[in-house]
Computed example of a mutant assay.
Amino acid sequence: MRKSLACFLESRDNNFNLVRFIAAFGVLLSHSYALSIGNNATEPFKQLVNMSFGHIAVDIFFISSGFLIANSLFVKKDLANFLWARFLRIYPGLFIAVIFCVFIVGAFFTSYSLIQYLTDAQTYIFLIKNTVLFFGEEASLPGVFESLPWSGVVNGSLWTLPFEVKAYCLLVFFSIAINRLLIWSNGALNERLIYLLIPLLGMLIYITNHFFTFLPISYFASEDFRLYSLFFIGTACYIFKDYLILSEQIFYPILFTLLASSINTELFFVVYNVTIFYVIFYIAYIPKGWIRGFNKYGDYSYGIYIYAWPVQQSVIAFIPGVNVLELCVYSFIGTMFISYLSWHLVEKKALKFKGKIPFNFKKS
């Protein structure tokens, strides 16, 4: 089968729900190693290719998001509806998750008295920053999980969400700026080329910094370039959807090259970063049949992602010395239950308000 990516956008029948679900489980699995012993050095993927499965899962989220969000923005061409839809997908579920962390997990596990905990400013810094996201995430609540191997961090998974929300804003900014540039240049500039140069430049800086550290505060700056570049790789794939061919004649050689490159971690790093987007889109669109039946169950990936960490920390607090396998099993069961409730009682209901922008918001 040789079809362009554009051919698959005509239908919403794809494997993205399953891909994101596996990625979310991968984050939970990866964190099971890190949280149970205080670091992720023993994780199999980390030992094999010097890259945790959680790292790979986040990359999957950002590339997929960049593609799907670009589709939403450029097809509808309605900025107000676009922003409202993004708000509905991120914030209602997140708000309940943060409330869960503060007033259930935190209040139960804090070493402070309940009065001290509820009157401590840090409690509300955690609540506000993790609800707003634009000011980054806040990891700790007063007196919570301070004696655990990964001490003091109540929900470490939330660190990527500010990047996600800011990526949406950057996409809007670039779309407006590029449109203005095209008008100003009277068509002399190539729109597709500009959208391609954004992630190429970002990824070049990220890969170069990996080998020759030069960015200030290198780790955090590197994460900026990594995540935004991945998001805009997804966007570029949408822009080039008519030219990006999904074919097993391309997929299997890429997959073989990727697997073969794992013999050297530095080689794998480069090959992975320039091929992972193709692997994601091939798996998301090509396999059919019974695998598509997963879509009827709902989209639990977001719930798994935002609830897994506090559930895992709670399991460790309840069962000191719990091993990686036990932690993974117990926390998956608990997280899956909460994610089921989150999807059906919060996220799915919120999404019904897409296209129904509050009057004042739409007017403004």
Rank of each mutant, 00 (worst) to 15 (best):
L5Y: 05
A6P: 00
N14C: 07
V19R: 02
S30V: 00
H31A: 10
S32P: 07
I37T: 15
A41Y: 04
T42N: 12
H55W: 05
F61G: 04
F61M: 10
I63W: 04
I69H: 02
L79I: 14
R89I: 04
A107C: 08
F108V: 14
S111L: 09
S111Y: 08
Y112C: 11
S113T: 14
L114R: 11
F126W: 05
L127Q: 07
G136Q: 03
E137R: 02
G143E: 08
L148M: 14
V154G: 07
S157A: 15
V165D: 00
S175A: 13
I176E: 02
L182M: 15
N186E: 14
I194F: 05
G202Y: 02
I205Q: 11
F211M: 10
S218P: 09
S222V: 01
R226I: 07
L227F: 10
N273R: 04
F277A: 03
I283T: 09
A284I: 08
Y285K: 12
W290H: 13
I291R: 06
Y297F: 15
D299S: 03
D299V: 01
S301M: 04
Q313P: 06
V315M: 15
I316C: 12
L327D: 13
Y330D: 06
S331T: 08
I333R: 01
M336A: 15
F337I: 15
Y340S: 07
H344T: 14
A350C: 02
K362V: 12
K363C: 11
